[in-house]
Each structure stands twice: as structure tokens, then as C-alpha cells.
């Protein structure tokens, strides 16, 4: 058997074997991975729009996805916006829940962030940042309160707490929230938030 023939046979054999192996593994894991991904989004929606029984993807564009949460009776209990924007070090992805009239923020959840650990990464910390977003009136543009405070009472109506030493990360989240709220209102006005009957469940 000539050398080149052997080379071809061996490589083909190795390739075929690997390929079949991978195909099997893919078959076995595909469903689970998809399930994991969905569960993550679902849990996030459930968190930011309490009372959700089923949720639907209402609208999708680059860096912005809107889900609608409905209770058992099928009545809209709020919107969940998944939005991404640039933070201090990289992309920040948030899940933001509002009431159906887009007047109040239910709560904010950080899905993904690459901010400086111990500093900007505190945008994922309830005590110093996230709790200040709970039940916040968002009918007006939100602003940042500087310097940082300890309790909700020290903030005025439409103010959000800063993270000490991480002004840029706090500002990035604030801007992301403000812009996605604006976009959501605009979408609602345009009527683009019609249910595509694409049940996420």
C-alpha cells in the first residue's frame, strides 16, 4: 500500500470515527442545552414580571427583545425587556420588567456582564444596586444619584443609586434602561408589540 493511500485511509477513518462520535454526543445533549437556555430566560422573566404564567416573545431586534408575561387568564401582567449595551469593560445584558402601562419598573436583573469584579460588577449586587430599582416609577427619565447612599429613602422620586467608584458602569446600566424603556414605549405606540403567537414555553 502506497504511503499516500495509507494517509488518506487513516485520516478518513479517524475523521469518520470522530464524526460519528460527535453526532451521537450531539444527539444526546442537544435537547438539554436548549432546555437550559430557555429555562434561564424563563426564570428571568418570571423574576422581573411576577405573576407570569406564560410568556411570549413579542418583538425582537438587535440588542433588544421584548417578552410579554401573562397570568393564568391570559391577561398581560407586564413586559420583560432583554437589552444589551456597552458597559465599562464589555457588553452588559439586562432583563427589565415593567408593568403593562410602562409606568413602573418591577425589578431589574443582570443576565450577563463583564464589569470589573468588586467594582462595576456590583451592578449584579442586590444590596448596593439592584434593590434600588425595585418598584421604581419610570414615567419620567431616571437619573443617577451621586454620591452613593445606603437606603431607598435617601433617593428622590426618579433617582437611582450609584455604585461607589463605578460611576461608568452605573451610568451604562442607567442609559441602557432609559433607552430601552423609550424604545418600548415607541414600539407600543406603533403597535409592533402584537403577539406573534410564538409561545416561548
Amino acid at each position: 500500500m502506497s504511503l499516500s493511500a495509507r494517509m488518506i485511509i487513516v485520516l478518513t477513518f479517524v475523521g469518520l470515527l470522530s464524526g460519528s462520535f460527535l453526532a451521537t454526543v450531539d444527539l444526546l445533549t442537544k435537547e438539554r442545552i436548549e432546555l437550559n437556555r430557555q429555562r434561564e430566560i424563563e426564570e428571568a422573566i418570571l423574576q422581573v414580571v411576577p405573576g407570569t404564567h406564560s410568556s411570549q416573545k413579542l418583538y425582537e431586534e438587535k440588542d433588544l427583545t421584548v417578552y410579554g408575561g401573562k397570568d393564568k387568564k391570559g391577561i398581560l401582567v407586564g413586559f420583560a425587556i432583554q437589552a444589551s449595551g456597552i458597559g465599562f469593560q464589555g457588553k452588559i445584558t439586562l432583563m427589565l420588567g415593567t408593568n403593562p402601562s410602562i409606568k413602573k419598573i418591577n425589578s431589574l436583573k443582570v443576565i450577563d456582564q463583564k464589569e470589573t469584579p468588586g467594582l462595576g460588577a456590583k451592578i449584579n449586587d442586590r444590596e448596593s444596586f439592584l434593590k434600588f430599582w425595585d418598584n421604581k416609577d419610570c414615567s419620567n427619565l431616571l437619573t443617577l444619584h451621586k454620591p452613593a447612599v445606603k437606603t431607598q429613602e435617601e433617593l428622590s422620586h426618579s433617582e437611582i443609586n450609584t455604585i461607589t467608584g463605578a460611576t461608568i458602569s452605573s451610568e451604562a446600566v442607567l442609559n441602557l434602561v432609559n433607552s430601552s424603556l423609550n424604545r418600548l414605549r415607541q414600539l407600543e405606540k406603533e403597535g409592533s408589540l402584537s403577539s406573534e403567537e410564538q409561545d416561548v414555553n
Binding site: L3, M7, V10, L11, V14, G15, S18, F21, L22, V25, D26, L28, T29, R32, I33, N36
Partner: peptide, 24 residues
């Protein structure tokens, strides 16, 4: 002559297995 190529294919197979399993 083709040993590196074969090794890489073999390694890549196991890496993909590991990656998929961890993701799952």
C-alpha cells in the same frame, strides 16, 4: 506525515464532547 492532523482531529473530538456535556 499526517500524525499531527490525526492527533488534532482526535483531540478536537474529545474537546467537543467535553464542551457539549458541560453545557448540558
Amino acid at each position: 506525515q499526517v500524525r499531527i492532523a490525526s492527533y488534532i482531529v482526535i483531540i478536537a473530538t474529545f474537546v467537543t464532547i467535553a464542551d457539549r456535556c458541560m453545557a448540558a
